[in-house]
Computed example of a mutant assay.
Amino acid sequence: MNFGFNEEQKSLGETVAALLADFPALTGPDPAQARDPAVWRALADLGLFALLVPEAQGGVGLTLVDVALAIEALGAGLAPPIAASTLIATDIIAREGTAAQRETLLPRIATGDVRIALAVMEDGQGYDPAQVRTMMGGNGVTGVKILVPDADIADMILVVARVDDRVGLIMLSRDARGVAIRHHADIDPSSGLCEVTLNGAAVMDGALIGHAGSGDVISRLMDAAAIVYAGMAMGIAARMLDASVDYAKTRVQFGQPIGAFQSIKHRCADMAVAVEAGRSAAYYAFWTAAENDPDRSRAASMAKAYCGEIARDVCNETVQIHGGMGFTWELGLHRFLRRAKVMEHGFGNHVWHYERIMAQTLAARAVVADARAA
């Protein structure tokens, strides 16, 4: 495969980055002031949410590989999480939705008229979606979801729940009867993490996504979300690397820039190597998702686990290279570290994903061994 992005893909990433730069509050020191509703409209007017929508539904018909650099830019610019959630939901609906669901939802997503939050995690249930207790019954959907990014500003919420003794996806209106939302107190207020309580939440017609399809819908959701989060993590890591190098070039100590000191050089070099390695893992995962390659789930977990660790470590190193200034509120480095820490635990932390890789690898080896024995 060719990891050399073409000019259109590069231009898309640069355009998204330039647009987000027009909203300085996104990366400003105060995370409580970073939720600007105008950002969504600007991204929608740019056409970001039409990119993954098939042409038949009024979109551009691109793949996750085509938008990989744009997703990195979303991470680097600390864009509202609802943007990433909507892109992930678009991929799921386009691949697993019925014809009616695609015709109803995708044109509105393409124009930016529908924002979709993803509700997966539950208190005390870990990261495995197979363990959810939220359930759809005769009176609606009942359960409690936690750590749902931007649920309060979403138009719809895509909920992982039990349906007919299977785990499935249910699309609910945020304003539906029986839906209550409250904010979590967390380290990154700009992520808009919410608790969503469903008390017999009303289910609209055609609410089940992929329930009668390939049976891959939950795995696809977790994989696509992990890959998108890995891409955004690399955007954060790359931006912090640039900040470290720029500061090392301009901060003078003992009569010379601190970048001339071997210890700083080594730190910057180590970060640069880590960022490039993480990008390789993320880009491969984007490709497997775009092609629906058999290695998709394993690649998604490798990228999510590795890129999350890289983003966290590079943010910490950047704070250290900036010295005492790195710890100040005004410099704003804490914003990127906060977001990286929140994203590290979204859709599975590194431990869960490493265990998933191990289980899939052992299962594949067992299949090979059985085939040889036969």
Rank of each mutant, 00 (worst) to 15 (best):
L48W: 01
L106V: 09
R251F: 15
S301H: 11
D91Q: 07
F49K: 04
D293P: 01
M204F: 06
T104V: 06
S219D: 15
A161F: 11
E344V: 02
A238I: 00
V196C: 07
C268S: 04
C307W: 00
G326S: 04
R239L: 00
P37H: 15
L48C: 05
G255F: 09
A56H: 06
A260N: 01
N349Y: 02
T361E: 03
M232D: 04
A374I: 10
V319W: 05
K249S: 13
G215M: 12
D113M: 11
A369V: 12
M121Q: 15
L62V: 02
V144T: 15
A374F: 12
V342H: 02
P129Q: 08
E309K: 08
P294W: 14
R365Y: 07
I264V: 13
A83N: 08
D216M: 15
D164I: 05
A117Y: 01
M222E: 14
K145E: 14
A130L: 09
I82G: 11
L43P: 01
L331D: 02
I264R: 01
H353W: 07
A233T: 10
R312T: 12
I310E: 00
Q57M: 13
Q320P: 02
C268L: 07
M343S: 08
E330L: 10
I109C: 03
A289D: 13
T86C: 08
E122N: 08
G213A: 13
L221G: 08
R365A: 06
L208H: 07
K249D: 15
D313V: 13
P31H: 03
A17M: 04
L19Y: 03
A185V: 07
G47F: 06
D223W: 06
L169K: 13
M121F: 09
R177C: 06
A364W: 03
T318H: 13
L147A: 15
A359Y: 06
I181A: 13
S190T: 05
S191R: 02
S173V: 05
R239H: 01
D30R: 14
R335S: 11
R365M: 10
A17T: 03
F336T: 01
L62R: 05
I153P: 10
F23R: 11
G126C: 02
D216S: 11
Y247V: 11
W287Y: 08
